[in-house]
Amino acid sequence: MEQAPKIVQVRKLYKIYDMGEEKVYALRDIHLDIRKGEICCIFGPSGSGKSTLLNQLAGLEKPTRGGVKICGQIISRMDENELAAFRQKHSGFIFQSYDLLPHFSALENVALPLMFAGVPLKERNKKAARMLRRVGLQKRMSHYPNQMSGGQQQRVGIARAFINTPEVVFADEPTGNLDSKSTKEVMEMMVAFAREYDQTLILVTHDKDMAAYADHIVTLHDGEIVQEEWKKEEEILI
């Protein structure tokens, strides 16, 4: 069976923080390939460098050395304007703290990426409503974040991340603030969307149960990749 193309390529990546007389190696000589359609889990304990790696992949931080290529473009060489345009077109984000705009309704939060993309109001509201129905929030479209539970807010975050069908969706500890029932629902929704549209989902977690949903697990320790595992199809939860 032919392998899917590489959508993320990382080569000789270092992230070093200068702490006065001491240099802290947050990432050290990272080499990594992630293929189109993969559910990739970056796994490791607190302080292992997994969130730093995600920030590098998402273009939120510049590397000290090395490079990151996504969708054929070297994002580590882009300036802030180029990165913003790239993320708008190619990336979606799901955060542990949900990062919803508090004075926007669920519908308005989900429609936000479409607004930045220049989609007319009527069309973006129609698409946002469709996404909210898909995540089971058809009765919460006009509700504000403070009127929703954590699980419901994260579903809004999922709908927002996937509404533009980006090639890559980044999820940083997306279930860290949720109970076990909501965690299962959120994981199943994210994976189902990614599978349906053949998107790449890159997930950061320290939770082994969440890693069970991935087909590619990258384990970090002290800023280095210490293990990579590719699961067989029958071993993946979804």
Rank of each mutant, 00 (worst) to 15 (best):
D198G: 03
T165R: 15
P45C: 03
G47R: 10
V110E: 07
P120V: 02
L54F: 01
N146F: 15
A194C: 03
K69N: 08
P145W: 13
S97F: 14
V204N: 01
C41H: 11
M78F: 15
Q147F: 08
D209M: 12
K184I: 04
K208G: 12
V68Q: 00
E229I: 11
P45G: 12
V135Q: 04
H143F: 11
A211F: 01
N146I: 06
L237Y: 12
M187C: 05
A159V: 04
C40A: 14
K208S: 15
E233V: 09
G92N: 02
M210Q: 11
T219I: 01
G151T: 02
L112W: 11
E2H: 14
D207M: 05
A128G: 09
E21M: 11
T64F: 05
E108M: 11
P63A: 12
Q73H: 12
F193E: 10
K12W: 04
Q3S: 15
G150V: 01
T64H: 07
N55W: 03
G49A: 07
L57D: 00
K89C: 06
R65K: 15
D222C: 03
Y17M: 08
K62R: 14
L132C: 07
E2R: 13
P174F: 02
Y213R: 03
H31C: 11
N146C: 12
E224L: 04
I70K: 04
H143Y: 12
P5D: 11
T52S: 12
G176F: 09
G151D: 10
D209T: 12
M19G: 07
K232Q: 12
R124G: 01
L100M: 10
Q153N: 13
I163W: 10
I236H: 09
G20P: 02
Y197H: 15
S97Q: 14
R65W: 06
A194P: 10
V218H: 00
I225E: 03
R155Q: 01
G44W: 05
P166V: 06
Q199L: 00
L114F: 11
D99F: 15
A4F: 09
A171V: 04
K231G: 02
